[in-house]
């Protein structure tokens, strides 16, 4: 009987010591790791477009961390899905709404306001998640091209449909050596 008691006692004391040790270690050697949400947020393209069904990239990152599908980000395309699948350990799926094998390389776009048609309603300004549209009430608005994420959110609210999403123009600076593409011939 004594043996049983002793063993319980010894084990109990050991458990206490180790527990204390672990507790101490947890406080003392706390690792400030990047929480999963931050890591997911890093991968998302930060267009803040809401096409995933969440109001911005961060909320979607939180949703993924809580188990939502990783294939809801059209601006990120397959590349983002692949990275997400590597990070959260979920199998990569084709982008929601597309078939397997379909190429979903997103085309980079920026918003462009046809300025003579703009009535200055400021609706797009409110819609823009990154404050990339400049303008005041009853004054013409314009898009700061460098800041535009191409999220599409300003197109819907515009009452006069004067916002176009134009693909980013290829210039010698951002040309990616696509020799096979046929350039526009200049006739002079």
């Amino acid at each position: 009987m004594n043996i049983v008691l002793y063993s319980i006692l010894v084990l109990g004391v050991l458990a206490l010591i180790f527990g204390a040790l672990l507790g101490y270690a947890k406080i003392k050697f706390k690792v400030e790791s990047d929480p999963l949400v931050d890591q997911i947020d890093e991968i998302l393209p930060q267009t803040q477009c809401g096409q995933c069904g969440y109001p911005g990239c961060r909320p979607y990152a939180e949703a993924i961390a809580n188990g939502d599908d990783i294939n809801k980000c059209p601006p990120g395309g397959d590349a983002t899905i692949k990275k997400l699948s590597d990070l959260v350990g979920v199998e990569a799926k084709p982008l929601a709404g597309t078939e397997e094998g379909e190429q979903t390389e997103p085309v980079k776009k920026v918003a462009y306001i046809r300025e003579d048609e703009c009535i200055g309603c400021t609706k797009c300004i409110q819609a823009c998640p990154v404050d990339a549209i400049l303008g005041a009430a009853r004054h013409m608005h314009t898009v700061i091209e460098d800041e535009c994420t191409g999220c599409d959110l300003c197109v819907e609210p515009c009452p006069v449909d004067c916002i176009d999403m134009l693909p980013v123009k290829t210039r010698p600076d951002n040309w990616r050596w696509q020799l096979q593409s046929i350039p526009v011939q200049q006739i002079d």
Binding site: Q46, Q48, G56, R58, P129, V130, D131, A132, D146, E147
Partner: peptide
């Protein structure tokens, strides 16, 4: 290009947070 895009995404995130 990827580096430029990452930089832009970082900026967009900051602007988005500022706006919020």
């Amino acid at each position: 290009q990827q580096a430029a895009e990452n930089e832009k995404a970082e900026k967009a995130k900051e602007r988005f947070n500022q706006r919020q």
